[in-house]
Every structure is written in C-alpha cells, then in structure tokens.
Deep mutational scan, measured.
Amino acid sequence: HNLTITQGKLFFHYNPKLCLSEIHKMEEVSGTKGRQERNDIALKTNGDQASCENELLKFSYIRTSFDKILLRWEPYWPPDFRDLLGFMLFYKEAPYQNVTEFDGQDACGSNSWTVVDIDPPLRSNDPKSQNHPGWLMRGLKPWTQYAIFVKTLVTFSDERRTYGAKSDIIYVQTDATNPSVPLDPISVSNSSSQIILKWKPPSDPNGNITHYLVFWERQAEDSELFELDYCLKGLKLPSRTWSPPFESEDSQKHNQSEYEDSAGECCSCPKTDSQILKELEESSFRKTFEDYLHNVVFVPRKTSSGTGAEDPRPSRKRRSLGDVGNVTVAVPTVAAFPNTSSTSVPTSPEEHRPFEKVVNKESLVISGLRHFTGYRIELQACNQDTPEERCSVAAYVSARTMPEAKADDIVGPVTHEIFENNVVHLMWQEPKEPNGLIVLYEVSYRRYGDEELHLCVSRKHFALERGCRLRGLSPGNYSVRIRATSLAGNGSWTEPTYFYVTDYLDVPSNIA
C-alpha cells in the first residue's frame, strides 16, 4: 500500500525493539523526510534493546553428524571492536523451508527459537588472519532439518551509529543413524509349514526405512522333555500350542467401542483428552525405555581390526524358502538304536541362519518350516543398504507352526516275539517326523474274553527296548493296539495285532 503524509511529521519514542533503520525507511515511504526535528525521533529510546544489523554474515563451514552440527561463519568486528559482546545463534526444527525470524513471537518477546549466546573469538592483530567464530550444536535429532541463523550482539553506541551483522536463515539436516526397533511384532501360524509375521514401523526411523531383515531359527525343545518319565503317576503330560491366527481386521481397528449394538453396526467412541494424553505418555515412556535398553543392555560386537582377528559373527547367506525346513542338525536320541526319531534339535552355532529381506511392506510369510516346531524370529529395521547396512537392534518374537495331521501315527506293522515265561516283546517304529517329539506310547492289549488293559511306555523305555515287553501273560489269544502321544496330543491307534500265548508248562520236552 502507498502511504503519503502531505502535512505533519513523524514522532517515535520509547520503541526499544524498533531499529532506527526501520524508522528511516518509514520517513522515505511516507514522504516526511526532512520535516522531523532532532528530538522527534529519539536516538536513545528507539532500538536500544534490539540488534540492528546492516551487514550480512556468511557461514564459512558446515559439518553434520547424526546428532551434531558444527558451524563456522566469517569474522565480524565493528569499528570499535570492544562493542562486540558476542553472537546469538538461533535454531529450531523446520520440516519445511518457510521459516521466518519472527515465527511464534508474542507480545512478551518470546519466540519459538532456541538461542545460544556465543563469546567472540580472540581478536588477531592481523586483519587478514582473524579467527572464524563458530559453535557445535549438540543433542539434535537424527535425520531432522533445522533452520539456523546467527547475528551479532553489540553494545549501545553513544554516537548512535547503527552497526551489526546478521546471516540469512539456512537449512541444515542432520545425518541418518540406526533406527529404533520395529514396533509390535506379531507372529502367527496359518499352516503346519508357515508363519505369518506382521509389525509396525519404528517410532524413530532416523532416516528413510529402506528394508527390513527377518531372521528365523528353529528352537530346540526343553531338555526336561527328553529326561522326564511322563508315565509316572502324578506327572502331567506336557503340551505345546501353536500360535493362533490373526483376529479379523475389524476387531483390530483402534479407537473402536468394545460393545456392539445388537441391531447392527455401531460407531466408534472418540477417545477423551485424558485417554489420548495417557497414550502419549505411555508411548514416550516406551521410547525412553527402549533407548535405555539399547544403550545399557546391548553391547556392540567388536569388529575385526587390522591384526587379522576374525569377526566372530557368522556370515549372512541367503537361502531359498524351500530350504528352511531342514535348518537344524538332527541327532538321534540314543545312538545305539537307529530307529528312534531325530527330534532332539541342538543347533550348531556355526550354522548360517536363513533370512529374508523385506522391502516396502511390514509383513512376511515364512514358508518351508517344520510342522509343530518353535521358531525364534528376529526382526531388524534398516535405513541404508549400501555401502553397508545400517540397521536397528533386533526385536524378537516366537511362534510355533501348526501340527501336521497323521504325523504322530505309527507307520509300519507292530511285530512281536514270544519268549519263555510268557513274555512277549512288542516292537514298532517311532514316527519319523512327529509333531514336536514323542513323549510316550500307549499300549492297549486284551486277552479274548477279558477286559482291555493299558500300559504306558516312556520315551526312554522305548529307546532301550525298541518297544516294550509284556510279562506274566496268561495263555490265550491276544490283540494289541499302540498309539503315540506327542507334544500336540495323541496320534491314531494302530491296526490290531494278534498273537497267541501258550502255557509254557505244557511245552513238550526233548528229553527222552
């Protein structure tokens, strides 16, 4: 807008934040220059609390790290170098490059900038070799853009010569660093050979998330399962459950009422301010606690030095998902009996873990797994792929695949051998790939016309006998059925096997 004052003059007093240069501009645009008398524009009460600059400061050096910015700028000295009290560095987070010096300023003089007072450097006698002032900004957020400017702080001049310097606002972004852990990993099994893994992005990506790394490792069953005799009275049979499938998407929606109208769909109840505040506090606490764990609990591995020492970490090797089922080394339970199943799973520490690289999504279907087997899954978020990966501390989750139908069934015939004193040795093959492992066998036998009897055969007993022995049988026709019990439950009964026990007292003698 054009402003013209045809008559009258300007009068400025007691404006401590208004620089004289701005008042002189007002004289020019209003056409009143030359009308004012000496005392109409006070030299001592206008701009006496402001830094009124008329020179431009330029930054000469900028260096960044993930949490620091090192700045240096060209030296500046007023005509009387004693008038320079120091520099004021202003900075704040700036997602967009549209910041002005006066953003967030209120009537009390406060604003949204963080201000650092910096002492002037030592003055050199040689004007050509003056030290460049600077400042190291610490405690910054990774991968965050900051708006920065600097200006001088000078003393009051009796001659009211307006001098000083100020830089333009520059924008500097800190470097990326390792992201925080992925949030809320959930693993479920939808079949006997697959596990579905879902997660949420890290709360602090500290860069642009480029991919996720998912490692999985087959877990050995508890050692007590191999040692305890679950045929003993009072000892509860062990059981394991597989990871249940995901709930429906509708039930997972946030901010939804727990109660549904019987007449149909209901609208979600909005969260109160107290609920939102509580969630923010919980989120802040979780982030602080995660940072504490990362800094205190997890110790970084030592990389190899120039002395030739090897990095103890196993090298990563990509495998196809079809090879995942046989990740671990199978060892027989008892070496003397080769027909026992290889369900003991000690994992070799030198073995390469299978892994998958996930790009542009937060889910993965891990296939080719062994049925009813526990897996430990390790999830890392990465925001750099080359020249070397920059990934987060791992988040861990466990899951067990679903049982395989008929995996616990005894394959092959049940054979028998009759000894003296009416002892019958029953023999059968253990299931080759049971659900988890076989903890015991149930032997059901009966003599024709009598009630059915049951015998429990422990895992250890089966390994020693290759089956079991029935003792003290009365003469007669017998039928026997056997079924295995694994961590997933009972298998199917075998087809009945028949044998006849004679009275050993009636056996004919070869003595003449």
Rank of each mutant, 00 (worst) to 15 (best):
S203G: 09
P205L: 10
P205A: 11
P205M: 14
N206F: 14
N206Q: 14
G207A: 04
T210Y: 13
L213M: 13
V214A: 06
W216Q: 07
W216P: 05
W216A: 05
E217Y: 11
R218Y: 10
A220E: 13
A220I: 11
E221L: 15
E221G: 14
E221N: 05
D222G: 05
S223V: 04
E224V: 01
L225R: 09
F226S: 05
E227T: 06
E227Q: 04
D229Q: 14
D229L: 13
Y230L: 11
C231L: 01
L232N: 14
L232S: 09
K236C: 06
K236N: 13
L237S: 12
P238M: 04
S239Y: 13
S239H: 06
S239F: 15
T241E: 06
T241A: 11
W242L: 14
S243M: 12
P244K: 07
P244G: 13
P245Q: 12
P245R: 09
P245C: 04
F246G: 10
E247P: 13
E247S: 12
S248I: 15
S248A: 11
D250I: 11
H254I: 07
N255W: 14
N255D: 11
N255R: 05
Q256H: 11
S257I: 05
S262P: 09
G264P: 08
G264N: 11
E265M: 11
C267Y: 07
C269M: 06
K271D: 12
K271Y: 13
D273T: 02
S274I: 03
Q275H: 06
E279I: 08
L280F: 14
E281N: 15
E282W: 07
S283F: 12
S284P: 02
S284C: 06
F285A: 12
R286G: 04
R286Y: 08
R286W: 15
R286K: 03
K287I: 04
K287H: 08
K287Q: 08
T288M: 13
E290S: 13
E290T: 06
Y292E: 11
Y292T: 09
F298H: 08
F298G: 09
R301K: 05
T303R: 10
T303M: 12
S304G: 04
S304K: 00
S305L: 08
G306Q: 08
T307F: 08
T307W: 06
T307L: 06
A309L: 14
D311P: 08
P312A: 09
P312T: 10
P312H: 08
R313S: 05
R313A: 14
P314E: 14
S315L: 11
S315Y: 14
K317N: 05
K317T: 07
R318T: 09
R319D: 08
R319T: 11
L321Q: 14
L321K: 12
G322K: 03
D323Q: 15
V324T: 08
V327L: 11
V331D: 08
P332E: 15
P332K: 04
T333G: 15
V334H: 15
V334T: 13
V334Q: 06
A335G: 08
F337V: 08
P338L: 06
N339Q: 12
T340M: 14
S341L: 12
S342V: 14
S342W: 01
S344C: 11
P346K: 07
S348T: 03
P349M: 04
E350R: 14
E351Q: 06
E351L: 13
H352L: 11
H352T: 04
R353V: 15
P354Q: 13
F355R: 06
E356I: 11
N360R: 11
K361E: 10
S363G: 11
S363Y: 07
I366P: 00
L369Y: 01
L369H: 00
L369G: 02
F372I: 02
F372K: 02
G374V: 08
Y375D: 00
R376T: 10
I377F: 06
I377V: 09
I377W: 02
E378A: 09
E378V: 12
L379T: 09
L379K: 00
A381F: 01
C382P: 01
Q384L: 05
D385Q: 03
D385H: 13
E388T: 06
E388F: 07
E388L: 11
E389D: 03
E389Y: 15
S392N: 02
V393M: 06
A394F: 06
Y396H: 13
S398V: 13
A399H: 08
A399D: 02
A399C: 13
R400K: 05
M402C: 15
P403R: 11
P403Y: 09
E404G: 11
I410M: 02
P413K: 12
V414L: 07
T415M: 13
H416G: 07
H416T: 10
E420S: 05
N421H: 06
N422S: 09
V423D: 08
V424Q: 02
H425S: 12
H425L: 03
Q429M: 15
E430F: 07
P431L: 03
P431S: 02
K432F: 06
K432R: 05
K432E: 15
K432M: 10
E433R: 10
I438A: 06
I438H: 02
I438Q: 07
V439L: 11
L440G: 15
Y441L: 01
S444A: 14
R447I: 11
Y448H: 04
G449Q: 11
E451Q: 14
E452Y: 04
E452L: 14
L453G: 04
H454F: 01
L455D: 02
L455W: 05
C456V: 02
S458K: 14
R459Q: 11
R459Y: 05
K460M: 12
H461A: 10
E465L: 07
R466T: 04
R466L: 04
G467W: 03
G467S: 03
G467Y: 01
C468A: 07
C468I: 12
C468M: 10
R469N: 11
G472D: 11
G476C: 00
N477F: 13
S479D: 03
R481Q: 01
I482W: 01
I482T: 02
R483H: 13
S486L: 00
L487N: 14
L487V: 05
G489T: 06
G489C: 02
N490K: 03
N490V: 02
S492N: 02
W493F: 06
T494Q: 05
T494Y: 03
E495N: 13
E495M: 03
T497K: 06
Y498K: 15
F499H: 01
Y500I: 12
V501K: 06
T502H: 09
D503Q: 07
Y504L: 12
L505G: 09
D506P: 09
D506T: 13
S509L: 11
S509V: 15
N510P: 09
